[in-house]
Write a protein that binds this DNA or RNA. Structure first.
Lengths: 187, 187
DNA sequence: GTCTATATGGGGATAGAC
DNA sequence: GTCTATCCCCATATAGAC
């Protein structure tokens, strides 16, 4: 394993701080201190704090999808993969001490003020939904019994709701609830 | 209608800015400028920005519940009241240009750093859920057919998911989806 | 490519006159 | 109770030496 490059270390440190403290509450000075670099080096790699934010979200998106890929790789049926999506997000919440969804968090912080970021988040959530849709299509090929469009929305919105309430309650209970509900939808 | 008191004007202006721009992105200087007062006056009414945040959330909570009370007053059956909760949140989203839920937003911004605020939000969401539960109990007194606990969670999490996705997509579609789903649960 | 020094502006909060 | 003046600190970003 090669030594971590400076640019990657910056992204890693900044990501951690953005996620745990919030984007606006994290200063450039704190980032360079924890990454142990000078401010000139940071601006050599990223032209602004906003570019750093983009790199952060891009990395989180890639890790989210590859993480799920790995997490559900051993499962064979589409219904088990859908249910493992609940487990996956439950696991992510637990291991981050219920810090919530990166993408919902950043939208809550920036509001309307940054269209590039807002668009990225919108597309990210569309990809997540497309993943559910894809699994549901596979499921329906075997047992054509459920309303595809409505069930996709149902599962996806339950997942988002569960993540949000898990963050607020610092508890995984909401995931256990929706797992039962989704099992009911797929039976 | 009496003239608005200074303290109320501060809260109103601050609330609007906190909601539209975010709490951390809103400075004291901007608040006093838009409220047209001096900084000394602000600190005469509120000892810190954090106290102003508390007043904001308290006001939003009161307005949320009284707003729903009024919105659903004309409806007689519990199932219609539950469905009107979907319409109510849809209406709030539209009239705020999809700015999202005040309480989810502030949790996303402050993270773990402010236990008093976190507790307040947690209790607020419990009250919202208790409202759904109460309506569902009334519903079940007539038609004892549904699993109460599970259905409360189901409806509540769908609502939270719909609000979040409505905020991200700047669209009310998610509310139309969950209204159909909830109608299915109550039939 | 990494460093230090600095620019410029805003943050939250306090003191004390009126 | 409202005002102005001010404190100290930190924000993002740039310039230019090495």
């Amino acid at each position: 394993m090669k030594k971590e490059k400076v640019k990657d270390r910056i992204i890693r440190v900044a990501s951690d701080l953005f996620y745990k403290q919030g984007f606006n509450s994290t200063g450039i000075n704190q980032i360079i201190a924890e990454a142990d670099i000078a401010i000139g080096s940071l601006y050599n790699h990223f032209s602004s704090k906003n570019e750093l934010l983009k790199a952060y979200l891009l990395k989180e998106e890639q890790e989210w999808f590859s993480g799920f890929e790995e997490y559900s790789a051993k499962l064979s049926t589409p219904e088990n993969k859908i249910l493992s999506l609940v487990d996956y997000r439950k696991k992510l919440q637990g291991s981050s001490k219920f810090a919530g969804c990166h993408f919902i968090k950043i939208i809550s912080e920036i509001g309307d003020g940054n269209p590039v970021i807002s668009d990225f988040v919108r597309k990210h959530k569309e990809k997540q939904k497309a993943l559910v849709k894809d699994l549901l299509v596979q499921y329906n090929e075997k047992r054509k019994s459920i309303d595809e469009e409505e069930t996709v929305e149902n599962i996806f919105l339950l997942l988002e709701g569960a993540v949000v309430m898990s963050t607020i309650n610092k508890s995984t209970d909401s995931f256990d609830h929706i797992k039962k509900i989704i099992q009911g939808l797929l039976s």
